[in-house]
Design a protein around this nucleic acid. Structure first.
Ligand SMILES: NC(=O)c1ccc[n+]([C@@H]2O[C@H](COP(=O)([O-])OP(=O)(O)OC[C@H]3O[C@@H](n4cnc5c(N)ncnc54)[C@H](O)[C@@H]3O)[C@@H](O)[C@H]2O)c1
Ligand SMILES: NC(=O)c1ccc[n+]([C@@H]2O[C@H](COP(=O)([O-])OP(=O)(O)OC[C@H]3O[C@@H](n4cnc5c(N)ncnc54)[C@H](O)[C@@H]3O)[C@@H](O)[C@H]2O)c1
Lengths: 204, 204
DNA sequence: TTGTGGTTGTGCTCACAATCACAAGCAAAC
DNA sequence: GTTTGCTTGTGATTGTGAGCACAACCACAA
């Protein structure tokens, strides 16, 4: 494909493809056609082909996509081929669940530090990490960590985000139900679980 | 506005509007213009006006939208004006966090029951609910509950979904990283937290 | 070497959503 | 009353992504 801006929607689907190819690899399937993959993911085959072709020609005509090498390609496109360190801020209910969730490792994520401002939580161990004082966020500067997961109450989210960005964080997964004001160079993805649930009754 | 199919994207934004109007109400602000609201939510003013106008003319020209009555209108549109009962399946790390989260009440949600298949968890109390055996899901038929939150491992999700649908559930918020196969009348919203995180490194 | 079945890669078309621009309309002041 | 200032509601326009159809291509068999 000649020069094309890669659609945001395509990027959003890439981790889904990566997960699918990773699972296929554990099942020792060597190739998969866009048709088969589309059935698994409930998409249209041309959608998948177009998405992948934005990044090059990974498939073999008449055969399909080689599972193992395509997985590696996608991993590299998403920069998940190197282990990505992330910090967690907020060791509350949701933060604790996330800190002990093993599922992030499939994408190469590693929770490298946890911060909270509650003295009852600071010093406790969650998974392999000790909960540190939020004041220690500044020390991230030296550690070259670029990703953060925010699981603090909504009214504390902006303040924490500012501190994180100040400490060199470039991407934030925000779980609080609020908009974060950040410089353009910082990418924020917000997941508001209650809001998603709020959509359901309309449809039923 | 004459007859128009309401865009899905508009529906997705409605809970965000509801949250904003609810907060404004607690701050005793009586009216808000699309301009002001757009600044808060980081949208464009015409976007908000068009979204709201799909459902009727709520605003006053020259003034803006009356906070209190518009909040009520949106609540009614989303069918959140009556308390919506929901059940939770999976009382693990994430399920426990959700069961004890007070934030759902802003949208009128109420966790009415919790199910698990682990004998160590069945019988325990989380929030105001006793954890019941998954086998009891059938009893939901009699209780007229239509919403469910699924927080079980991915390989158990489809089975639980089938049981829930069989018991009369019409909408599912699925937190497992997998596609759920359901009849067309059932609405599923899937949130895959790890996948969302997987998007970040690409942009940074 | 050539033919065949099957699947990819992609230009084109269509559908949908975001944005714009402005007429319509209300409130408050005079 | 009438005028002024401001904001809504909406047709028209633009932008973006999804879907389709088919040419290009590969592997393999004969
Ligand atoms: N629990 C859920 O199921 C759920 C669902 C949807 C959204 N959320 C959102 O996720 C966020 C966290 O929710 P939760 O249920 O884990 O809340 P929580 O109260 O259990 O945990 C919040 C944690 O953040 C810490 N904290 C507060 N202020 C801080 C600060 N300034 N710096 C550092 N740490 C601070 C607290 O000490 C606490 O440990 C909230 O914004 C909530 O709205 C939670
Ligand atoms: N914890 C996280 O931060 C996180 C993040 C992203 C996604 N998820 C997803 O959310 C889901 C739950 O995650 P978790 O961390 O809470 O896992 P968990 O293992 O802590 O909890 C799962 C719960 O489901 C129960 N369960 C298992 N099979 C069941 C069945 N057939 N019927 C009823 N209950 C059953 C288990 O007994 C357990 O209590 C998983 O699909 C996970 O991939 C979790």
């Amino acid at each position: 494909m000649k020069y094309h801006k890669i659609p945001d929607e395509t990027i959003k689907r890439m981790p889904m493809y990566l997960r699918a190819f990773s699972i296929l690899k554990t099942q020792n399937q060597e190739t998969i056609s866009s048709q088969q993959l589309a059935e698994r993911l409930h998409l249209n085959p041309p959608q998948i082909r177009k998405d992948l072709s934005y990044f090059g020609a990974f498939g073999t005509r008449g055969i399909g996509y080689p599972v193992s090498s395509t997985a590696e390609q996608i991993r590299s496109i998403l920069k998940l081929d190197v282990s990505q360190q992330a910090v967690l801020v907020g060791a509350g209910r949701l933060g604790t669940a996330i800190a002990s969730y093993p599922g992030f490792s499939m994408f190469g994520f590693d929770i490298a530090a946890i911060f909270d401002n509650d003295n009852n939580k600071i010093g406790k161990t969650i998974g392999k990490n000790l909960v540190e004082n939020v004041a220690e966020i500044v020390t991230l500067k030296a550690r070259n960590i670029r990703l953060a997961i925010l699981a603090v109450p909504a009214n504390a989210a902006q303040g924490c985000a500012d501190a994180l960005i100040d400490a060199g964080i470039k991407g934030i997964l925000n779980l609080s139900p609020c908009y974060l004001n950040v410089p353009k160079r910082v990418k924020v993805i917000t997941i508001d679980i209650a809001m998603e649930l709020g959509i359901l009754p309309y449809y039923i």
